[in-house]
Simulated assay, not measured.
Amino acid sequence: MSTAKKEYKRITTKTLVEMKKHGEKIAMLTAYDYTMAKIVDHAGIDIILVGDSASNVMAGHETTLPITLDQMIYHASSVVRAIERALVVVDLPFGTYQGNSRQALDSAIRIMKESGGHSVKLEGGAEISESVTRILSAGIPVMGHLGLTPQSIYKFGTYSVRARKEEEANKLKADAILLEELGCFAIVLEKVPAKLAREVAESITIPVIGIGAGDGVDGQVLVTHDMLGMTHEFSPRFLRRYLDLYTEMGDAFKNYILDVKSRDFPNKEEQY
Rank of each mutant, 00 (worst) to 15 (best):
F185E: 15
F185T: 04
A186V: 11
A186F: 08
A186K: 10
I187E: 14
I187V: 15
V188D: 14
L189P: 09
E190Q: 13
E190S: 13
K191H: 15
V192M: 12
V192S: 12
P193C: 11
A194Q: 12
K195A: 15
L196T: 13
A197H: 06
A197Q: 07
R198E: 15
E199A: 03
E199R: 04
E199C: 01
V200R: 02
A201K: 10
A201Q: 12
A201P: 11
E202M: 08
E202W: 03
S203G: 00
S203Y: 03
S203T: 01
S203P: 00
I204D: 14
T205I: 00
T205R: 06
T205A: 10
T205M: 00
I206D: 04
I206N: 03
P207S: 06
P207Y: 12
V208R: 00
V208T: 07
V208H: 01
V208S: 02
I209P: 06
G210D: 09
I211Q: 06
I211G: 00
G212A: 04
G212R: 01
A213N: 10
G214Y: 11
D215H: 13
G216P: 10
G216D: 15
V217D: 07
D218V: 05
D218Q: 09
G219C: 07
G219R: 03
G219Y: 07
Q220S: 08
V221P: 01
L222S: 08
L222N: 09
V223R: 00
V223Y: 03
V223I: 05
V223L: 02
T224W: 09
H225V: 00
D226P: 05
M227I: 14
L228S: 03
G229D: 04
M230D: 02
M230L: 12
M230E: 04
T231D: 10
H232Y: 11
H232R: 10
E233M: 00
E233D: 14
F234V: 06
F234N: 03
F234G: 02
P236N: 13
R237M: 02
F238S: 02
F238Y: 11
L239H: 08
R241L: 07
Y242L: 03
L243C: 14
L243G: 01
L245N: 11
L245V: 05
Y246G: 07
T247S: 14
T247R: 10
E248Q: 13
M249I: 14
M249N: 10
G250H: 05
A252G: 02
A252P: 00
A252M: 05
A252W: 01
A252V: 03
F253K: 01
F253I: 12
F253V: 13
K254P: 00
